[in-house]
Amino acid sequence: MENEKLKERLSSIKSLPTLPVVASNVIQLTQNPDSTAPEIADAISQDQSLSSKVLMTANSAYYGFPGKINTINYAIVVLGLNNIKNIVLSTSIMERFSESDDDFLFDRKQFWQHSLLCGIISKKISEHMGIKNFEEMFMCGLLHDFGKVVLDTYFHEEFVQALEMAKTQEIPIKDAEYKIFGFNHSGVGALLLKRWSLPPSMVKSVEFHHKPDEKKSVKRTASIVHVADYLCRRIGIGSGGDDVTPTLNKKAWNLLELNAEIIKKMTIPIIQEFKSATGFLGNEKDSE
């Protein structure tokens, strides 16, 4: 029911947001296990501005490589394919969705800050849990609320209504969205990421980040994003567009084997990494 409504509404959009061709090619290439570094470097080099963004981010304090990375090729072999994919994807999305209507209810800058912090916390938790592919977990965290931007862009008036409702009734935005649209941002984001052929685990983690125990296959990753989202709001950097801290899913929390002590230890590295990662946020200058 929810899904049908969602599909119906989205199909009403004439031009669904697409990824830039270059980014899309790069992501496809990185998903093929046989793609070589030069092939991917070629693909990135098709877009001059993307190339320079990639190099800038690769040299940023966030990655902290103790040396100069001058070529895309070198960036690929030093940072690895997952990081390159992350840089390309986040740069492209943020460029595409960063312009804001100066809407005080939904501040894009605040939104991306929240997303970035969530990505970093997701990554840190994954590292703590010994999950190998923590770079992908960064992406899951970064894009978990992506649906909100889509709603804000394509159904602006209704989304503003939802924001106001969340504010006045003091309810989470996802509940307000549901009242107004009949679906909420997690489904929208997931649907779009799926269209962009991003890995299914990433798509599902975004889709289930509010109800992490409902989908077995992504229970772990969705739980990470869920807890990271919760911790972001506790830390108080950035904004997801509402002020109500979502309730913490106990099962998800228990699954991650975290405790107050571990969180306390993680907090400072998280804030440091967040500061060094602002290069991800498009037009801002690298802090190095």
Partner: peptide, 22 residues
């Protein structure tokens, strides 16, 4: 390579090429 490069690679924990092909 310099020790700081090794330390960095160890922290990343994955196979890393440290020579620029180009």
């Amino acid at each position: 390579p310099e020790e700081k490069v090794i330390t960095w690679v160890m922290y990343q924990g994955r196979w890393t090429v440290i020579t620029d092909f180009e």
